[in-house]
Computed example of a mutant assay.
Amino acid sequence: MFDVAAATFAWLVTGPHPVCVDGTAIPGLPARPVPLDELGALLLATGCTQATRDATWTYLITRARAEGGTWTMACVGLAMPVLLPVAAQLTHRFRGDRHDIHAAVLTGFLHGLGEAALDRPAILVRLRWAAYRAGYTALREALDAPAPVEDTEFRSTPSHRPGGHPDLVLVTAVRAGVITTDEAALISATRFGDLSLTEAAHARGEHYRTTQQARRRAEQRLARYLTEPANDTDDASAPAPDTGGRGYLRGSGHPVVRLSPTHRLRLRGVTRVSPELAKKFVRPMSPHGPKSGVSARGTRLPARPRRGHSPGPAGHPAPAQEARSCD
């Protein structure tokens, strides 16, 4: 897909009469006809200002909307330094067919040519963002699609689902309704890609602080989704022990010791990071444990019923007996 576009652009700038832009109509360019390949080098130069880039893309998009054909391919060719990194990022670890995602990136860019507002700054950044979102949507659909299985008599094992992609977690979160597709694309482009948050804010038509807060809220929801237990099936689905309503296991005399889900989560995390620090965590302890210190003390048995027992000296009831130590 991109090979064909690059070959077409090369054909536009080859020969004695290459396609040129009118430099006098664009501030910052030489006042003469400027071939497209020279124009691309000028736009990539570090001395080129953002005003010159926006004026150039306004000129190119205006002619592409009016004439199409040659000028549309000119826009695609001049945007190659932006579109190729986007396509490479989205398909970096994708195991399936990459052509559909590349086609989606190019389609998103072409759609942006017809929809981009030319009176706003950072035109190329917004076109790049449109291409990225289209490619990301195609990637998400490809990751969600079932693995194809050919109905032939002799075939190998079905191919594995695409895995190991850095955006796979974001795709799962989108499918679970934790974040939206735009939020996932924003996180992916600004965290894993080379798009800065300032450029993303320009492309979204928002202030920097608004985009920053939108990404922060999405990342907070994503972090809670990834760190909190999905459900406590180990404890909630298990039948509760028969305690007889007293907090003790019936027939054993031992109290039931339960850990809350929060305590278990913290304890697992601290134990994994620092076993020494885990020893300082307060654990619910049974009074019958070897380190509780309770079993070494005597316990008072309840007094026996009065009937059938002789009173103590001077008519007082017999004193309660002290049980022997458990040791």
Score class of each variant (00 low, 15 high):
Gly163Asp: 12
Gly164Lys: 14
Pro166Tyr: 14
Pro166Met: 09
Pro166Glu: 12
Val169Trp: 02
Thr172Asp: 14
Ala173Trp: 01
Arg175Tyr: 04
Arg175Met: 07
Gly177Ile: 14
Val178Trp: 01
Ile179Arg: 02
Thr180Val: 08
Thr181His: 06
Leu186Tyr: 01
Ala189Glu: 01
Thr190Trp: 01
Arg191Ser: 14
Phe192His: 14
Phe192Arg: 12
Asp194Glu: 13
Ser196Leu: 11
Thr198Asn: 07
Ala200Leu: 04
Gly205Phe: 00
Glu206Gln: 12
Glu206Cys: 09
Glu206Asn: 12
Glu206Pro: 05
His207Gly: 15
Thr210Arg: 15
Thr211Cys: 07
Thr211Arg: 03
Thr211His: 02
Gln213Lys: 14
Arg216Ser: 11
Arg216Met: 06
Arg217His: 11
Ala218Thr: 07
Ala218Gly: 08
Gln220Glu: 12
Leu222Asp: 05
Arg224Tyr: 05
Arg224Asp: 04
Tyr225Gln: 06
Leu226Phe: 00
Glu228Gly: 03
Glu228Lys: 11
Pro229Gln: 11
Ala230Gln: 10
Asn231Arg: 14
Asn231Trp: 08
Asp232Arg: 14
Asp232Gln: 12
Thr233Asp: 07
Thr233Ile: 13
Asp234His: 11
Ala236Gln: 06
Ser237Asp: 07
Ala238Thr: 05
Ala240Leu: 13
Ala240Ile: 00
Pro241Gln: 03
Asp242Asn: 07
Asp242Ser: 06
Thr243Tyr: 01
Leu249Asp: 02
Arg250His: 06
Gly251Cys: 07
His254Gly: 07
Arg258Lys: 15
Arg258Val: 15
Leu259Cys: 07
Ser260Cys: 11
Thr262Ile: 10
Thr262Gly: 12
His263Val: 08
His263Lys: 12
Arg264Glu: 00
Arg264Val: 12
Leu267Val: 02
Leu267Lys: 03
Gly269His: 10
Val270Leu: 11
Val270Ser: 04
Val273His: 08
Glu276Pro: 04
Leu277Phe: 09
Ala278His: 06
Ala278Cys: 12
Phe281Lys: 02
Phe281Asp: 03
Arg283Glu: 10
Met285Leu: 14
Pro287His: 11
Pro287Leu: 10
Gly289Phe: 06
Gly289Asn: 10
